[in-house]
Design a binder for these strands. Structure first.
Lengths: 334, 334
DNA sequence: TTGAAAGCGCTAACAC
DNA sequence: GTGTTAGCGCTTTCAA
């Protein structure tokens, strides 16, 4: 049962193949009667064009490659949503690849996307293997790196300073008068690492000693992990005045653990999270957090890519800092 | 700056193109010395194979199409994660398309995927336009419909009875002794609709009168919507003894609204949600919910697809009910 | 406005 | 084990 091809449609309609192709791509270039005959034939035969052939012949794929470290994180879901909204509406296909927080997998993902001849790559993060970086630089297509700020962007870089954000969160706690401030995190990816550095910087500047608790995050339970981390910290006799969690889910878990133990928030311990997830504002107590602009990051990245493709020129090094915002709420006495 | 092709590699290595192709796809079929020369040439020239050409020539795409109504929902994120885990590891590429809860967009998505000659389609939901259904039936590839149970699956159907689940949730509340039970939902997609029907069935069987509150869900705030819906219901003087929310996020918002108004949960009003999201177990009060098996749905769908492709035969109508579980917690006095 | 010819970059099938 | 030939299904010239 051979699939129907463009040639089949052409013979059926009694026109040349190229006419069918034109009807499908630029109908205005074909006269009304032929157009109708072709459209009828397409419908009659149930013809579906083969994109692989079209891509090969035209050297255009109308595809954008996107690399994210994980699919299981609302942050990236929102970002992907924004990318989709802009790119799909502009007639592009989005291919999402998941690097699972591994630079090796990221390099493989880049190879796979290049093999597909994607017209641009949007990649979360600025840390790549040397070879990956080389591939991206030599690929001759627009590359957008997101979420972090790079000293040396490949092409375009859109993000925020994770370190400054970490510092700002910590400074907020310091301003509230706390000295014993703990830092809690799940897996220490580059972004959490930077936040941790910001935390240490703020603590150092204030003359305080920091202490962090890091624990690998199992796949499905950032909230539960927050409780676990918090419990562990308390069990060790490390009773802080305030906790900075690298993620709102962790913070929520930590708050629940405290509540379970009769520790008041913020009366006994203040808590600040990161990302300002939806529940933060309406949790109780409402959770202070650092608002990150992942939706805007996605939209802007997509728009930059579209204009670069339109201009068919590779954009020069551009760095856009979308910033962040400290949201002060009840969990830190706000 | 022409891209490096297989022919370039071949001349560089002094072998025929097909030998290069073999080294890349079945290295064992090529002698050691040639293999080394080819690999060196590939590296030296930075050759990246063109998948479009390969797909066209081999008539295999190693691509699976996946259609989901939205990307902005943890349920589908978990499901996609499971699909990715199985399919990517088996050497397939996953192309995800988002139908935005529209059957028309779903039909377009199907066309786009067929145009890409995906080797199987995994689609969330069982409700399609007549034309979409026809396309899927005639496409001669394995089709898996998920999340709901179909009377008449295209090929394979993996899911749960949304209606029974809605009924079970309601019956749980009825057993607790409640008569005035409200049903709260955001947008009424097919699955929520079925849950609503289950709710009405349970109420009817118990001889009670049901009342539902439906409101279109704006993109980013299921929790806030839950508060809004709850507030609206209370403002109208409709004070129920229990609330069944079609989603845990709504339930969380509703609980928060109640707390704000000094309404005790479960002392004044009981609340049950749906999906058993991560926070349900550790919210306070912990939230009763209906656990859905979306992760397993994803894995099983992917596995079924793989074995169908392996057998290169279209599977006959098969329906797999993965069931659900009523999780009784504090919010309904558990 | 329409068509003929050529070729995109790869692989299947068949020789050697 | 290696190469030759042909062709996958489209689109890009260029000519009419």
């Amino acid at each position: 049962m051979r699939r129907v091809t463009l040639d089949d449609v052409a013979s059926f309609a009694g026109v040349s193949p190229i006419t069918v192709s034109r009807v499908l791509r630029k109908p205005d270039a074909v006269s009304e009667p032929l157009r109708q005959r072709v459209n009828a034939a397409v419908k009659e035969l149930g013809y579906v064009p083969n994109v692989a052939a079209s891509r090969l012949a035209s050297a255009r794929t109308h595809t954008i490659g996107v690399i994210v470290p994980t699919l299981y994180n609302v942050i990236f879901a929102e970002y992907l949503l924004a990318l989709h909204e802009v790119l799909v509406d502009a007639g592009f296909q989005v291919v999402v690849v998941n690097s699972r927080y591994s630079e090796i997998e990221e390099e493989n993902a880049i190879k796979a996307l290049l093999g597909q001849r994607v017209e641009a790559i949007i990649i979360a993060g600025i840390h790549h293997t040397a070879h990956a970086r080389q591939l991206l630089e030599h690929a001759n297509l627009p590359v957008v790196e997101t979420f972090e700020l790079s000293q040396d962007p490949i092409d375009i870089n859109i993000g925020m300073s994770q370190e400054s954000a970490g510092q700002a969160a910590t400074q907020h706690l310091i301003k509230r008068g706390f000295k014993r401030i703990a830092f809690l995190t799940g897996n220490l990816d580059h972004r959490s690492q930077s936040r941790l550095e910001g935390y240490h910087r703020a603590m150092r500047e204030a003359g305080f000693e920091g202490f962090e608790l890091v624990k690998q995050k199992p796949r499905h339970s950032a909230i539960a992990l927050g409780s676990t981390l918090c419990a562990e910290m308390l069990k060790r006799g490390n009773i802080p005045e305030a906790i900075f969690c690298t993620d709102d889910n962790l913070a929520l878990g930590a708050m629940q653990e405290c509540r379970k133990r009769g520790i008041g928030i913020p009366s006994d311990i203040s808590v600040i999270g990161f990302h300002d997830l939806e529940f933060a504002a309406c949790a109780s107590p409402s959770l202070s957090s650092i608002a990150s602009r992942r939706y805007e990051t996605g939209r802007l990245a997509a728009e930059k890519v579209l204009s670069a493709i339109q201009a068919s020129s590779r954009p020069g090094g551009e760095r856009i800092d979308l910033g962040f915002e400290v949201k002060v709420r009840e969990s830190t006495g706000g």
